[in-house]
Every structure is written in C-alpha cells, then in structure tokens.
Amino acid sequence: MSKQILKAEVASLGGLQLKCSARGFEFLIDEPENVGGSNEAMNPLEALLCSLGACKMMVVRFFYQAKHINLKSMRVEILGEIDSDRLKGKPDVKVGFSKIITNYYIEADNSEEEIAELVAFVERTCPVKDTIVNAPEMELHINP
C-alpha cells in the first residue's frame, strides 16, 4: 500500500472570509451577509458539495472512454439538506447535512443501462463520496 499525504491550509482574511490553499492554488470561502459574511464566495458546506460533484465528474472524465460511453455532455447537481436550527442553538438537531442528493445530467449515445452502469461505477469509486460515507479516522493537534 502506497500512502500519500495531501495538504491544504486555511487562513483567515478577516471577518468570515478565508483563503484556502493547496499545491499553490487558492480560493476563497465566505458566508452570506445574513450570517455575518460579505457574500464574496461560497461557504464551507457549498464548497463540500462542489468538491463532491467535481470528484464525481472527474471519475467520469477519467473512465468514460474505457467504459465505452460516447459522452456528449454532462453536469452534476449536488443538493445538501441541512437543518439550520442547529446553528441557531437548537439542541438535538444534526449539525451537518442530513441528506445529499446527486442529480446526473448525461447526454451520451448509449443505452440507459450503460449510463446507469457508468453512474454506479462513479458512485462506487468517487474518493470524496467514500470519504463522506466512510468517515476517516480524525486526529487533532493543537500547535503554538
């Protein structure tokens, strides 16, 4: 088994705005104005949904030809259901998403069965989905 460590860093830019960095690339995270942000970027939960959708799209892009899919176009819509009452202090309410829904929109010269097989493959092999469904061991270090 060959293990690899991926590294990401998040730094505060003031207010609720954050700079996320990995491998020399950056993007911003923010919150909507109604919760104290400046609404200049997506929030962390939206970024998670985007990461999940992007990962599913990448799996398709890597494997559609090997699966003999004549792909013309594709997009993935990810919906996350969350109860915002928990963030408002209501006890006994799940903090994170209670449901995540993926809607695939695939245009291809293939049968419905072939497209369904491709989607099933994506759902089995998407690393971000696997990370969400089968939570990794979490370790915490507090550094000076």
Score class of each variant (00 low, 15 high):
113 E>S: 13
122 V>Q: 07
23 R>Y: 15
48 L>P: 03
121 F>I: 11
36 G>C: 09
22 A>I: 00
90 K>A: 10
39 N>Y: 04
93 V>G: 15
64 Y>E: 08
70 N>D: 14
88 K>W: 02
56 K>C: 05
88 K>Y: 03
54 A>R: 00
60 V>F: 02
17 Q>K: 13
58 M>W: 06
66 A>F: 06
63 F>Q: 10
107 E>P: 10
32 P>V: 02
19 K>P: 02
23 R>T: 02
51 S>P: 09
51 S>T: 01
46 E>L: 01
136 P>G: 11
127 P>I: 00
66 A>L: 12
84 S>F: 08
37 G>E: 00
96 G>D: 10
57 M>E: 14
85 D>A: 13
107 E>H: 14
33 E>K: 10
35 V>C: 09
136 P>H: 15
32 P>L: 06
103 N>V: 12
100 I>C: 10
15 G>H: 14
136 P>Q: 08
102 T>L: 03
61 R>G: 09
110 N>F: 05
55 C>H: 01
129 K>G: 02
67 K>G: 10
103 N>F: 13
77 E>G: 01
98 S>M: 11
12 S>L: 00
57 M>G: 11
14 G>W: 06
37 G>R: 05
49 L>G: 03
39 N>R: 05
104 Y>E: 05
22 A>N: 07
105 Y>M: 09
117 E>T: 12
18 L>R: 10
48 L>S: 02
137 E>S: 07
9 E>I: 04
125 T>S: 02
21 S>F: 04
97 F>C: 04
64 Y>F: 08
100 I>W: 07
102 T>E: 05
50 C>T: 07
128 V>G: 10
50 C>W: 00
42 M>Y: 06
13 L>P: 10
83 D>E: 13
71 L>H: 04
49 L>I: 01
35 V>L: 11
66 A>H: 13
64 Y>L: 06
53 G>C: 06
95 V>M: 14
135 A>L: 14
23 R>N: 11
85 D>Q: 11
37 G>A: 08
132 I>A: 07
62 F>N: 12
34 N>V: 06
53 G>P: 04
54 A>G: 12
108 A>H: 06
66 A>T: 14
125 T>N: 12
75 R>V: 10
72 K>L: 14
136 P>Y: 14
41 A>F: 11
122 V>C: 04
39 N>D: 12
131 T>E: 09
102 T>Q: 02
68 H>I: 09
110 N>R: 13
56 K>S: 05
10 V>G: 09
80 G>S: 06
26 E>H: 13
115 I>H: 01
131 T>I: 08
138 M>E: 00
116 A>F: 05
109 D>C: 04
128 V>I: 14
76 V>I: 05
45 L>T: 03
19 K>M: 06
73 S>F: 15
103 N>I: 11
126 C>H: 06
93 V>T: 12
34 N>L: 04
136 P>A: 09
43 N>Y: 05
94 K>C: 13
26 E>T: 04
74 M>Y: 07
113 E>F: 03
74 M>A: 15
28 L>A: 09
120 A>R: 00
